[in-house]
Write a protein that binds this DNA or RNA. Structure first.
Lengths: 190, 190
DNA sequence: GGACCTCCCTAACGGTCGTTAGTCTCTAAG
DNA sequence: CTTAGAGACTAACGACCGTTAGGGAGGTCC
């Protein structure tokens, strides 16, 4: 991919996150790139190409971040690192994460199907961590794995709406992790 | 509001949730109502009126559901009921909840400001429950209230993406609540 | 029975949408 | 010195956008 095309993708990520896919016109993109509208077609075949690129980049980033979690660590530790990894991607690539989480649904046909499959696979990888934790008795054996994973994913997927780059994302993730692991109930309560 | 206007609002909620605000044209709305496009202007002054109505209806529904939580119950019980209340609204008015959670940002000017204020107020009411729980020692005194409330709100706000009407929403909410309150850690782990 | 009111109609507005066609310029490789 | 490709241009396409103007049918109220 040429440098110019990469630049266009960055602009698309930013505008799609800011104004939505449908709310962003090719004229907007062209203006940001400093070019006339039809000139964009030297780089793309359609507007949807850009959405696909950004959404795919998001999927790749989240999967890659999860890949970096050490395979042999205890399940509980892997959950903690997975949460850190996810929030780090959101904070570090907020535009891409926003498109990945909210704008992907404007994809159509095979691309949409392909994206949904990647998304499902990511969720499954998260669920596997909880499954592993229960099976290895690191997590309580009566834990509802589906509910626990859904809670994790809810926190992860909602983050793009409030998380802003700059803060200590790891500490943030660890605070989430602490509440999830140890609960909220008071010490004295039976 | 006339019956016809109310019918239009229902159609708008459904289409905005399904295709997005910007992805829904007045022609789409008119066709669903069985009317020519300009006839819509007998009922509305602009397309944004419909978005405002649906978003406001969502805000009212969530606040009303929270109002129904008994004031004098223990904080922990109020948190459980608040989660039930929120998920019940999402399941019972999925279109409205979707617009409330995702499409509101296409509001502009004062309406947008007003909506954001209502949204903030709702979040504050949730945070207050956790604050109350900590102050009354129902929740652990070292609990990070902001993190706990954010976790609650993440689960609540993400629900529109996966929750479908029909199931036992109360049981679902109680499963979330159980994980949040008691955590996930195994009994044997120190 | 005339005056309103609700509801819907046709016709048309100016503007914007994503996209296509065809051409020019600059630069780097053979 | 020629050729090829990258990158951008102007002009224009048909379709659709939200909105406005103006009028007509059917019912209700004084």
């Amino acid at each position: 991919m040429s440098a110019r095309r990469a630049e266009l993708t960055r602009i698309a990520a930013r505008l799609f996150a800011e104004k939505g896919y449908q709310g962003t016109s090719l004229a907007d993109l062209a203006e940001e790139l400093g070019v006339q509208k039809p000139s964009l077609y030297h780089h793309i075949a359609s507007k949807e190409d850009l959405l696909w690129d950004v959404a795919s980049e998001g999927a790749a980033a989240f999967h890659a971040a999860l890949d970096a979690v050490p395979e042999r660590a205890p399940a509980v530790e892997k959950i903690r690192l997975a949460l850190r990894a996810h929030l780090a991607v959101v904070a570090g690539q907020l535009d891409v994460a926003t498109v990945f989480t909210r704008e992907w649904r404007h994809l159509e046909g095979e691309r949409r199907d392909g994206f949904v499959a990647e998304r499902r696979r990511y969720e499954e990888r998260i669920r596997d961590l909880f499954r592993e934790g229960v099976e290895g008795s690191e997590l309580r054996t009566d834990l509802d794995v589906a509910t626990a994973a859904l809670l994790f994913l809810s926190a992860a997927n909602w983050a793009y709406t409030w998380l802003r780059p700059g803060g200590d994302t790891d500490a943030l993730a660890d605070r989430f992790f602490a509440v999830l692991l140890d609960g909220m109930r008071g010490y004295a309560t039976p």
